[in-house]
Simulated assay, not measured.
Amino acid sequence: MNSTTSGQPRLLNLEEFAALIRKMREVFQWSQETLAELAGLNVRTVQRVENAKSASFDTRRALARAFEIEDIDAFNKPYIIPTEEELKEEKARFDRDYITLPTFPLSTGRQLAKLAEGSTVDICQPGFEIKREAHEVFAALIDYFREYRDCASEYPETSKFSVYDEMQELIDELLTQQVSIHCATREVHLKVSDSQPDAKPMTVQMTYLIAFEQGKAPDEFAVQKKPDFRF
């Protein structure tokens, strides 16, 4: 791709759009899985786009949202391919606002309980368009996670085994519906009060629990540095 743009704006054909998306993804250093997760698309859809096989109106909108392009219809309009410099500027802006976290699969109730015991705040949500029945099970699992987190210190060790078992049942039920949970954690430093500028930030442990189609979870999450969380 040239470092300068030329010519009049026009609709990109499939080959040009494929090259653009590949280049943008490479500049952002994202895998196809990460781009799919941010766009709310199936990885196979991203692969078809990058292979110049298809790029529907809605897919182009989803990709624009993933790259945080203000006009979500930018890819559906006459367009000039951005320069290398412009892409690098977008990458720098993304790095200011987001960090990338490695993920790991949630497989046991005990694992989820231990995450709850060490968690202060959380972001829990589906990473794809989940069916109603599976969504209800996922919601029940998250409710249990939060309830246990709030009172875990009050549980005798012998009582925790029933918690592990009940969480395991919900995890297993999701797996039967082809849904898996992937997790990530990080420390977040929160400003205690705007009225106390000299106060030391409070450090909390944030947990991310995201539901994916089984076998299609990404190896990493791109998350906001200043997240919208829940205590």
Results as ranks from 00 to 15, higher is better:
Thr103Glu: 05
Glu26Phe: 09
Leu174Met: 02
Ile123Leu: 13
Arg60Glu: 00
Asn13Trp: 02
Val27Cys: 11
Gln168Ser: 04
Phe104Arg: 13
Glu85Gly: 13
Pro102Asn: 12
Lys226Val: 14
Leu190Glu: 12
Glu157Arg: 05
Tyr144Trp: 13
Asp71Leu: 07
Phe221Ile: 04
Ser6Asn: 12
Leu141Cys: 01
Ser56His: 01
Phe57Thr: 08
Arg44Met: 07
Phe67Pro: 07
Gln125Ala: 13
Ala36Met: 01
Gly127Met: 06
Ala62Ile: 03
Gln205Cys: 15
Glu90Ala: 14
Ile130Asn: 07
Ala113Val: 10
Leu11Tyr: 15
Val46Asp: 04
Arg132Val: 04
Asn42His: 14
Phe161Arg: 15
Ile80Pro: 03
Met202Asp: 07
Phe67Thr: 00
Lys226Glu: 11
Gln224Thr: 08
Asp172Tyr: 12
Glu86Pro: 06
Thr59Ser: 06
Ser162Glu: 11
Glu86Gln: 06
Glu169Leu: 14
Glu220Met: 14
Val188Asn: 11
Leu14Ile: 09
Thr103Asn: 04
Val27Thr: 03
Lys200Trp: 03
Leu141Val: 03
Met202His: 12
Asp58Gly: 11
Pro201Met: 03
Thr34Gly: 05
Ala140Gln: 15
Gly7Asn: 09
Ile99Asp: 04
Val223Phe: 08
Ala217Cys: 08
Gln178Trp: 08
Pro126Met: 05
Gly40Ile: 13
Arg93Val: 06
Val121Asp: 15
Arg149Gly: 04
Ala211Met: 03
Arg25Thr: 09
Glu84Ala: 12
Val223Asn: 11
Leu38Arg: 15
Ala55Ile: 05
Ser162Ile: 00
Val188Glu: 13
Ile81Val: 15
Leu20Arg: 00
Ala52Pro: 08
Gln29Thr: 10
Thr5Arg: 13
Leu190Arg: 04
Asp97Gln: 13
Thr207His: 01
Ala116Thr: 05
Phe75Leu: 09
Gly127Ile: 00
Ala199Thr: 14
Val188Pro: 02
Asp71Trp: 03
Glu16Asp: 03
Asp172Thr: 14
Met202Ser: 08
Met24Cys: 10
Leu141Asp: 15
Arg65Leu: 08
Asp219Ala: 12
Ile99Gln: 09
Ala74Pro: 02
Thr4Asn: 15
Phe75Pro: 01
Ala134Pro: 06
Gly40Leu: 04
Glu15Arg: 12
Val204His: 12
Ser31Asp: 02
Phe67Gln: 08
Ile72Gly: 02
Cys151Tyr: 09
Asp194Tyr: 13
Phe28Cys: 03
Asp73Val: 00
Ala222Val: 15
Pro197Arg: 12
Asp228Lys: 14
Phe229Ala: 15
Ser153Val: 13
Glu68Leu: 07
Tyr98Asn: 04
Ala66Asp: 14
Arg22Cys: 11
Leu12Glu: 06
Cys151Arg: 10
Asn2Gln: 13
Phe161Met: 05
Glu50Ile: 01
Glu129Thr: 12
Arg10Val: 00
Ala18Cys: 05
Asp172Lys: 15
Ser193Thr: 09
His135Val: 02
Ile72Cys: 09
Ile210Thr: 11
Thr100Lys: 05
Thr4Val: 15
Glu136Thr: 11
Gln224Pro: 10
Val43Asp: 01
Ala199Ser: 13
